[in-house]
């Protein structure tokens, strides 16, 4: 087996606050292979965006990170000096963000912001950079590309700006693309277009794609593999058909029941909701963190053993005492 492009093991991100230390990401592990799409799914605040930023080593100053392993193509990202990390960013690993309205710099033209990546990584002459920028804008649907090059972000719609962000991420011809909720801030009609574009580009450029989303509906359409996060931990991994078709973690089942349509339950049945709230992640925690919202919880769920990952098959891992039981 070849080495995965991005390997994450035992990733922990903590944020010190007045009330104590928040364990925002608590031992997350997954990997993204070359040309593979991994969907990291979870609700707001489950730590998925921090996980993505940690992979880029772009965590905010207030956050502290440790990891048993955090590697890009075998390079240990935890020990790499900042200069070497900067050489990777934008060149071999790129990232696009949730809010395209604020992610582009308002005072520079679209063209300048794209070519900047090319210049920074010395990928060719300025003319070649402009050529590539125009081609990528054309490809991502920012047309007429030559004209858009000279425009400023505020002259573009949200959907176009996200397309610009995608084009910009591809300027360095990266191997890994991390997309943090790339469609969440967009209109529903635009969401589908952007998602389709991402899927096409992922194949075209053979990208390893780490797609972060709270929308399970996206997963079936794009993912090769899925990791479901809850309260800073990965609670279930598998292929989309495994996770969506045969969810083993009660949280995943809860998420699925919140999804409209998709043939779950008779037409006209009530949309599900998971009762309760996510427990506080400040201070020490043990046991399964979902137990206070789980309909199947038992006394054992409060033990440390309950949070241990159980491997059902290669790549099929569930953090639940009852994982072996088919639902």
């Amino acid at each position: 087996m070849t080495m995965p492009l991005l390997e994450v093991e035992g990733l922990r991100v903590t944020i010190d606050g007045p009330a104590g230390t928040l364990r925002a990401v608590d031992g997350v592990g997954f990997s993204v292979g070359r040309g593979e799409t991994l969907c990291l799914v979870g609700e707001s605040g489950c730590g998925k965006s921090l996980t993505a930023l940690a992979a880029m080593r772009l965590l905010p100053r207030a956050a502290r990170m440790t990891a048993d392993r955090l590697a890009f193509d075998g390079l240990d990202l935890t020990s790499l000096p900042e200069r070497a990390l900067a050489d990777l960013r934008g060149r071999r690993m790129a990232m696009i963000f949730q809010d395209p309205m604020t992610a582009l710099n308002p005072v520079h033209t679209v063209g300048d912001q794209l070519v900047e990546v090319f210049d920074r990584h010395r990928l060719g002459s300025r003319a070649e950079g402009r050529d590539r920028a125009v081609r990528l804008l054309e490809r991502t649907g920012v047309r007429p590309a030559a004209e858009r090059m000279g425009q400023y972000p505020h002259q573009l719609s949200g959907g176009l700006r996200q397309r610009v962000m995608i084009a910009m991420a591809l300027m360095g011809d990266p191997e890994l693309l991390i997309a943090d909720e790339p469609t969440t801030a967009l209109d529903v009609t635009i969401q589908a277009q952007i998602l389709r574009l991402l899927r096409e580009l992922q194949r075209e450029f053979a990208l390893g794609l780490l797609l972060i989303t709270h929308n399970l509906g996206i997963v079936a359409r794009v993912a090769d593999r899925v990791a479901v996060m809850y309260a800073g931990r990965v609670v279930e991994t598998g292929t989309p058909s495994e996770v969506l078709g045969d969810p083993r973690h009660p949280y995943t089942r809860g998420l699925l029941s919140c999804l409209p349509g998709a043939g779950r339950g008779p037409r006209g049945s009530r949309l599900g909701a998971i009762p309760g709230v996510v427990p506080s992640l400040v201070g020490p925690v043990d046991g399964c963190l979902f137990r206070n919202r789980c309909g199947e919880a038992e006394a054992d769920c409060a033990t440390t053993a309950a949070e241990a990952p159980r491997t059902l098959a290669p790549g099929r891992i569930v953090r639940c005492l009852k994982a072996g039981v088919t639902a």
Binding site: G90, F97, E116, V117
Partner: peptide, 25 residues
Amino acid sequence: ADYVRTARAKGLLMPAVLVRHALRN
């Protein structure tokens, strides 16, 4: 600001991030 995070995600070095992106705004 988000655009500074974007600038860093592009691999820009601190002087460019500070001057061209942050200070310019």
